[in-house]
Design a protein around this nucleic acid. Structure first.
Lengths: 225, 225
DNA sequence: GCGAGGTTAACTGTTGACAATCAGCAGTGT
DNA sequence: ACACTGCTGATTGTCAACAGTTAACCTCGC
C-alpha cells in the first residue's frame, strides 16, 4: 500500500488549476493573478507561485516575467510541434516495449484498448479522449523508461488542452472514431513485431494529424461564431 | 539588437549552481541547503528555491520533499534512458531539418562540425564535449521545432553531467574521437537524404552507447580507486 | 553491548510585508 | 487630432520570520 505522503499546498493548487484549465472554466489567454488565486484557495502567494511554475513547466500556462502568467492559447502550430515529438518518442516506446515488456503488462495495454473502444462508442468526447490518452500512457509505460513516461505525460497534457479548446470552439468534429489505429498498435506489440508496431504508431499519428488538420481547415475559413 | 532584459535573481543563482555542478565542484549526492546558498549568494531563500526548482526540472538535481535537494548522481541506467530519448528526437529532428532547413542554416551546422573536429583534436575533453553538444544542439535547431530544441537542451544537460562525472571517476576513457559519426550526419542532411541522415544518427548513438558501455564495464569490475 | 524511544537541532514549507516594475490613463504640448 | 510625458493603481519579485517535519543524537532499559 502506498505510504501516505503529505501533499504540499502547491500540488493541491496545481491540481485544482489544471482541472479548471482543462475543463475550459479558465479560458485560453486568461490572466492568472497570484493574489487572487491565493485568496481563492486560502493560501499565501508562495504555494501559488510554485503551482503556476509547475503548470508552466508542463505547458498549460505561459510565464511572462514581471507581467504575469496566462493560460496557454495553443495553436495549430503548437499541435504540430507536440505531435512530431509524441510520434518520435512513442515509436521508441513501442520498440522498447516489444523487447522488454512481459505478457502481463501487454495485457494491461489491451485493457486500456477496450476502455478506448467503449469510450468512443459513447457520446462524451471528453471521456473518450481521456481513455485515448490513457492508452498511450500505457504504451509509454511499457517502455520501462521513466523519463520517457514523464515526457509523454507532459506532452499529453498539452494535447488534452488543445483538444478541449478545439472542442469548445467548433463543437463537433465530424469523424470516424479512431479505434482501429489503436488496435493495430496493441496487436503489433502483442505479436512482438517491431516493424508493425512502429508503422502502426506512425499510421496513428498520420491519421490523427490529418483529421485535425481537416477540422481546423474547415473551421478557420469561417471564424465567425 | 537584443532588448536588454533584467535577469531575475533565481536565474543568476541557477546559472552559478549549474556551472559548479558541471565543473564537479559540487559532487554528485551533495546536499544543497537553501539557507547556505542564500547566504553564499547574498539573496533570500525565495530565489534560491526557484533556482533549485529549475535545476531539478532539467535533471541536474533531485528534490526530495521536506528532505532537501541533492546533486543528481546519474547512473548507467539513467544514461540509457536519456540516450533512447535523445536518439528518437534527434532522428525526428534531422527528418524535419531536411525538409525545411535552408542551405544557410545547414552551413551553420558545418561550422559546428568543424568546431567539433578541432576540439577533439585538442586534449581538453571537457571542451570537446561542449563542442559536441553544440553540434547536436545545432541539429535540433534545424528542426525549427522549439519544443524539440528545449527538450534536447534538457537532455543535453544531463548528458554533460554524466560525462563530467565519468571523466572524474575513471579519468581517461580510451577511445577514438567520434568525429566520423558527426560528419556523416551533417553530410547526409546536406545531401537531403532522409534515410542516410536517420541512419547516421542511429550510428552515432550506437557508437557512443557502445563506447560508454565499454568504459563502464572496464571500470565497474574494479571500483576501488 | 545493543536496540527502542525520546529529545533536540537543523532545515524546509508557508506566511505576510516591503520594494521594484509594469500597464493604463490623464494631461500637456504641438 | 495626435504623440509624448508623467503619474497612479495593480501586480510581481524579494525578503525576513514562523511553524511543522525530518534526521541525528542521546539516554535508558534489556
Amino acid at each position: 500500500m502506498a505510504v501516505l505522503e503529505h501533499k504540499q499546498l502547491w500540488e493541491t493548487v496545481a491540481d485544482q488549476l489544471r482541472e479548471e484549465i482543462l475543463d475550459g472554466r479558465l479560458a485560453a489567454g486568461t490572466r492568472l493573478v497570484e493574489t487572487e488565486l491565493a485568496a481563492r484557495y486560502g493560501v499565501s502567494r508562495g504555494p501559488v507561485r510554485d503551482a503556476l511554475s509547475e503548470l508552466s513547466r508542463v505547458g498549460l500556462t505561459v510565464d511572462l516575467p514581471r507581467r504575469g502568467t496566462f493560460v496557454s492559447s495553443l495553436t495549430e502550430h503548437d499541435l504540430e510541434e507536440v505531435y512530431v515529438i509524441r510520434r518520435a518518442i512513442e515509436e521508441a516506446a513501442v520498440r522498447l516495449a516489444i523487447e522488454r515488456a512481459g505478457d502481463d503488462e501487454i495485457g494491461a495495454l489491451f485493457a486500456a484498448l477496450q476502455a478506448v473502444e467503449a469510450a468512443y462508442a459513447g457520446d462524451d468526447l471528453a471521456v473518450a479522449w481521456e481513455a485515448d490518452m490513457e492508452f498511450h500512457r500505457a504504451c509509454s509505460r511499457l517502455s520501462g523508461n521513466r523519463r520517457l513516461m514523464e515526457l509523454f505525460d507532459l506532452l499529453a497534457s498539452q494535447t488534452v488542452l488543445l483538444m478541449r479548446t478545439s472542442l469548445q470552439s467548433h463543437a463537433s468534429l465530424a469523424w470516424t472514431p479512431p479505434v482501429e489505429v489503436h488496435r493495430r498498435i496493441a496487436e503489433a506489440i502483442a505479436a512482438r513485431s517491431v516493424e508493425g508496431a512502429v508503422e502502426a504508431v506512425g499510421a496513428h499519428y498520420q491519421y490523427t494529424q490529418d483529421r485535425l488538420a481537416a477540422t481546423e481547415a474547415a473551421a478557420s475559413p469561417a471564424p465567425g461564431d
